[in-house]
């Protein structure tokens, strides 16, 4: 009776076929006008708010990226650890911490997101860059 377990385990394991696949490769989108509400906030919702939310914000750079809160916490706001650098400077992605962190530049400590969706897709990175260069509008 006990011997039944052994074939059972083998069967359970072999039920799931192995695949050998890599991806996805996303086609690069041509980005013209970026909407904060429709394009940027969904990126935060999917990749950032597990940590950057109202409940735990004090431990994660004092930053809350939940909808309705994120915009005011980003635009021209100083990083909590250094008053000389800003999270987002409109029209200036290169000097915005947000862009540098998601661009994996290693300039400002850990790149984001940390885990488990590391890193942002190229399209999402481009969206953030273009949004900042277009003036970081709340549109």
């Amino acid at each position: 009776m006990k011997k039944i377990y052994i074939p059972l385990i083998v069967v359970v394991f072999s039920l799931f076929s192995c695949t050998k696949q890599q991806g996805p490769i996303e086609p690069l989108l041509v980005i013209s006008t970026v909407s904060y509400v429709n394009d940027i906030q969904p990126i935060f919702d999917e990749n950032c708010i597990d940590c950057h939310n109202i409940n735990v914000e004090q431990h994660f750079g004092d930053l809350n990226l939940e909808a309705d809160k994120s915009y005011i916490e980003l635009i021209n706001i100083n990083a909590d650890y250094d008053e000389n650098i800003k999270r987002v400077i409109p029209n200036n992605a290169i000097n915005s911490i947000l862009w540098q962190k998601v661009n994996n530049s290693n300039l400002y400590g850990d790149n984001m997101p940390l885990t488990p969706n590391d890193p942002l897709s190229q399209n999402n990175q481009n969206l953030i860059k273009v949004w900042i260069e277009e003036g970081a509008l709340d549109n």
């Binding site: 799931f16 076929s17 192995c18 695949t19 696949q21 890599q22 991806g23 996805p24 490769i25 996303e26 086609p27 989108l29 999917e46 488990p116 969706n117 399209n123």
Partner: peptide, 29 residues
């Protein structure tokens, strides 16, 4: 068992075939 991230239309696997998630993609051994 996490939700699969969204992928935009026209995404492909490295071998060039159309990309879509399946249950097998959740598994590691």
């Amino acid at each position: 068992t996490q939700k699969f991230p969204k992928v935009i239309d026209g995404s492909t696997f490295v071998d060039g075939s159309n990309f879509s998630y399946s249950f097998a993609h959740r598994l590691s051994f």
